[in-house]
């Protein structure tokens, strides 16, 4: 039997038999070389309670070349592209070793969710959000976990009307802070437009990246 096939089949079987880890590997079609991995978001992180799915492609020269992984589930994380799901992780590149397995790689991915590396980002905008305003970043990450990964969502804060919650949600998806959006809304601009412009300018408050309020207003007037 082809060595690559034997190895992948054994890896899939080992993963099935292992009842202690939460890692799952499933076939997408009949091919054992295109798989779907999944794992729960780590406890104590904004990803807690979410279920994350990963697309796995086994290259021709596996295990001598690394597997190709990308998130199917949308993840708000500095080392994951918010648009494509592409992942920046050393063992998927130069630090790959043929002794690593699909399971160990997925565990590494899970642990990447615990410890973001904003200095080596995949998504520069998310990384900037992470470094400049951690709380706001976590709000967005929790929200993404809720809507994309089936997470529990933010802890209920008392006394909020449903419309206010909806607004907060829109802002959270865009990775912005409510106070910033409201500030420009108060100037008479439409909320959706404010969110659009602030997101495009990557606005994190007036002192960050020398982005003045005038500059934002200028964009809003366009």
């Amino acid at each position: 039997m082809d060595a690559r096939l034997r190895r992948v089949n054994k890896e899939i079987a080992d993963c099935k038999n292992d009842k202690t880890s939460n890692i799952k590997i499933d076939l997408i079609e009949e091919s054992p070389f295109h798989l779907k991995g999944s794992f729960p978001g780590p406890e104590g992180t904004p990803y807690q309670g979410g279920h994350f799915e990963v697309d796995i492609v086994i290259p021709e020269s596996y295990p001598f070349q690394p597997v190709k992984l990308k998130f199917i589930t949308k993840v708000y994380h500095p080392n994951v592209s918010s648009a494509s799901g592409a992942i920046c992780l050393d063992i998927l590149k130069d630090a790959w070793s043929p002794v690593l397995t699909l399971k160990s790689t997925l565990i590494s991915l899970q642990s990447l969710l615990c410890s973001p590396e904003p200095n080596d980002p995949q998504d520069a905008e998310v990384a900037k959000h992470y470094t400049t305003s951690k709380n706001s970043f976590e709000d967005t990450a929790i929200y993404w976990t809720q809507i994309y990964a089936g997470g529990p969502g933010p802890k209920e804060k008392k006394g909020k009307a449903s419309t206010a919650r909806e607004t907060r949600d829109e802002i959270a998806i865009a990775g912005l802070e409510r106070a910033h959006v409201e500030q420009f809304e108060a100037l008479g601009f439409e909320r959706s437009k404010v969110i659009d412009v602030l997101r495009r300018l990557n606005y994190r408050g007036p002192n960050v990246a020398k982005l003045s309020e005038d500059r934002v207003v200028e964009e809003l007037l366009k």
């Binding site: 050393d90 063992i91 630090a95 070793s97 002794v99 690593l100 790689t105 565990i107 590494s108 642990s111």
Partner: peptide
């Protein structure tokens, strides 16, 4: 050396 303790794998797995 270039291949030094990997960022996360070695943390969780005591592999080789």
């Amino acid at each position: 050396s270039s291949r030094r303790p990997t960022r996360s794998a070695s943390k969780l797995l005591g592999l080789a």
